[in-house]
Design a protein around this nucleic acid. Structure first.
Lengths: 383, 383
DNA sequence: ATTATTGCTGAATCAGCTG
DNA sequence: TCAGCTGATTCAGCAATAA
């Protein structure tokens, strides 16, 4: 059976035996689509085994009659059985059921993304909070090209909302801050994202008709997976549809597990993911966090003679001076001696301080921040 | 007693006698601030008597310790007793209580606006639906100048959410479609609004300190009142604060009723509303502030597949080559990876470089500068 | 313990230019 | 020479669930 084949998973729970602590991923149907009900299929997956979940559940749109454009043509709206629920209570039960399984399956340091519109997102958000998830951000997907409000009765519904949540208030989670900042031209990535709706070549069609009414753009998943997962991570999508999550996961070197009921969607997803080309390793590399890339102790610079013992450091406005001691600690009048960070915090009366950007050496003409000296050392010793 | 004086409303209900169907507005404390608890004061108002409600309830932020900026200064955060709730359940009870009174007070053709953040908006939205309100739109207030995420732990929280709802699925409501379209340069008003946070002259201060920690910009209320009420209508604001709703209502020729507990807020609101001039044209100008920023990050083109990861960029004379990575950074032999600008500067040994005009993609036949690719994206997505 | 971490707006200030 | 203007620069401030 090929990597992309669908899998009819057993309804029973093949949990990892407690006595044999193998990696949970050994039990996982990686890079496959499980066909069936989303809650039942999730029950078949082991606890604490996936790194991230992306979920695009039914929106419970509750649309009325047909909608026509001013030119008389009919809008091709969502009108599928899977989007119909009897009542808000039914929808809430459904939401709580799958969110509960999701929480079981996620690793303690994992996180979940859910997308929705005003029809369902408030139910979803409240359910997430009720189940102890900790909301980290709500993200607004601003559609560059939304459908207009033909009747002129409301504001053009030009966005959808995503919720990103961790396993709990104190839980760890993955956030690739540098990658997001790099992706956004060296500005922090904000909570409002402008991304076109899925169309053109990317939109899957069969006989001229949309295969799926609400296919999500790959750019959206690209940003999410890049921000909140790492290469090799396992991403679960319990409402797989035509497999946007799978296609992007493959491109970015992540594993996926999809769950989907409908034959047509699965067939389209399999074909699509088969054609997706994984990026080669160098392209998948992202900007490292400065921590990982440039960890050099200040003492190394002292040892190496770049900042000799006895040098005088000062802040950018020459308000304070400190003397470098042989062990790389600083001696500053009226302060306990200590690290560049501690003494920097001390003189400012601040709770903390990044000594690398606070302290400067004076070469007689101008000040030079010691972080620049650190870069010199790195260039000379790593490149 | 002047129009702007505060009123200590009775706790009992001076309802309109059924036998004498006078206009409900005869019983209303128009253009006044009722001091007291919001639910108790709402109980004092007659049923089906107001045309619109704008509510800015406590967000239940649940902040932890102090937050400091990278420069060591402390963030002046919301830390007021009125924003503290024991639990989600307590907050839900509070929300249901005031929404229930709101529904009693609203006319059948009235509508309600509630603003919140991800901390509380999902509770509010679910409660609105549970009480039979019908959500018409969710609106995203995109802040032009949000506070950055200083710790680099999440996406910059750059928006708040508003919910607009009518009295029920079949209820009528006011929506001034033409006014909104005119306000938006003859384009339908979308559900995402770019408006600066409240600052400058508009921000009420006392002794250099903010009077209210979360004063809303008048531009926001201006758009809401213009869209969903008519001149002479009665607008209720059960969390009046420093009276943004009252000031804008006066300017636009609407009546307001404010409810507020705190003496300081009421005093500031009274003074402010006294000074507000009806129909100040400058307000309209504020609204016409640019609604679409056209900045496009290189990462957007990478995400969107216009310049896929792994693509090779080169300068106009093909002297240097660089590989595009998933996060939009460039990898170039002998250089530190970084942004298109930084790597462009690096290879040339220049202090700076405009990467948009320096780097080109090679389509096999000819080179195409990436700035042209950016123009393509803009044309396809903004025009 | 270590060390990484901020963007946009508007007011105020100031240098430089003009009439 | 100076008042007045312009543009560059600086600086304070903002609903935050903040390693």
């Amino acid at each position: 059976m090929g990597v992309m084949d669908r899998v009819k998973a057993p309804a029973t729970k093949p949990r990892t035996p407690k006595a044999t602590p193998r990696p949970a991923s050994a039990d996982l149907p990686l890079d496959r689509i499980l066909q069936g009900d989303c809650v039942a299929m999730m029950r078949s997956l082991p606890a604490a085994s996936v790194d991230m979940i992306f979920a695009d559940p039914p929106y419970n749109l509750q649309l009325g009659g047909d909608l026509h454009r001013p030119d008389g043509s009919q809008v091709d709206a969502v009108n599928d059985e899977w989007d119909k629920f009897d009542s808000l209570a039914t929808y809430d039960r459904f939401t709580h059921a799958w969110l509960k399984e999701a929480k079981r399956i996620l690793k303690p340091g994992g996180s979940i993304w859910v997308i929705g519109s005003y029809h369902n997102i408030f139910r979803v958000g409240a359910a997430l909070q009720d189940q102890g998830y900790w909301i980290l951000n709500d993200i607004v997907w601003r559609k560059a090209n939304p459908m207009p409000n033909f009747k002129g009765t409301r504001f053009t519904n030009a966005h959808e909302t995503l919720i990103w949540a961790s396993m709990g208030e104190k839980a760890r989670y993955t956030f690739n801050y540098r990658a997001m900042k790099t992706l956004n031209d060296e500005l922090q990535m904000r909570s409002d994202w402008l991304i076109p709706i899925c169309g053109g070549q990317e939109r899957l069609k069969k006989g001229g008709a949309k295969v799926h009414p609400t296919q999500k753009p790959e750019a959206l998943l690209y940003r999410i997976l890049l921000a909140c997962s790492n290469p090799g991570d396992v991403i679960l999508d319990p409402f797989f549809g035509t497999g946007t999550t799978g296609a992007v996961a493959k491109r970015l070197g992540r594993h996926f597990i999809g769950i989907e009921r409908e034959d047509d969607y699965i067939a389209a997803a399999l074909e699509r993911i088969e054609m997706a080309l994984p990026l080669d390793e160098s392209a998948v590399k992202t900007m490292m966090a400065p921590t990982a890339a440039t960890r050099v102790a200040f003492g190394t610079l002292v040892e190496g003679g770049l900042v000799p013992p006895g040098s005088v450091l000062t802040d950018a406005k020459r308000r304070w001076k400190a003397v470098v001691r042989v062990d790389g600690s600083l001696d500053c009048e009226g302060q306990d001696a200590g690290s560049i960070h501690k003494v920097g915090a001390g003189v400012q009366g601040a709770p903390s301080c990044n000594g690398w950007t606070f302290w400067h050496v004076d070469d007689g003409k101008q000040l030079r921040v010691i972080d620049a000296v650190r870069q010199d050392w790195l260039l000379a010793n790593e490149a």
